[in-house]
Simulated scan of single mutants.
Amino acid sequence: MESTKLWHVISLYLSTALVIFRNLLLYILNLNQSPLLTKFMDAILSFYFRLCDLSPCAIDLDEQTTIHFWVANHRRFDKQSLVMVHGYGGNSLWQFLYQVGPLTRKFNVYIPDLLFFGKSYSKSLDRSDLFQAKCLSDGLKRLGVDKFSVYAISYGGFVAYRMAEMYADAVEKVVIVSSGILYTDDQRVEQLRKIGRHPSEILVPKNPDDLRLLVNLSMYKQNSLYWLPDFLLREFITMMYDHCRKEKIELAKHLVEKKADTNLPVLTQETLLIWGDQDKIFPLELAHQLQGHLGSKSRLEIIKDTGHAANMESPDKINKLVISFVSGCSS
Rank of each mutant, 00 (worst) to 15 (best):
D126H: 11
V266N: 00
L26V: 10
F325I: 08
E250P: 05
S15N: 09
S178A: 15
T184M: 12
K134N: 02
G118L: 06
A287C: 10
M219L: 10
H254V: 12
S122Q: 05
P199F: 11
L290W: 03
K123T: 09
S149V: 13
T65Y: 06
R75N: 12
T306D: 04
L264G: 04
V145S: 03
K246V: 13
K39D: 13
T104H: 08
Y27I: 09
S327K: 14
A164Y: 14
D42N: 01
Y98V: 00
V9G: 06
D305S: 01
L97K: 12
K39A: 07
D113I: 03
G156V: 08
H74P: 05
L214S: 04
S149K: 09
F148K: 04
L203Q: 14
A260E: 09
P229G: 00
I281S: 12
A287G: 15
L214Q: 14
Y155S: 10
Y220I: 04
M312C: 02
G180E: 09
V159W: 08
K39F: 12
G292A: 07
I274V: 14
T238N: 05
F282H: 10
I318H: 09
L286G: 03
Q289F: 03
K134R: 05
V175K: 10
K304V: 01
V159C: 12
S327E: 14
M84F: 13
V266H: 00
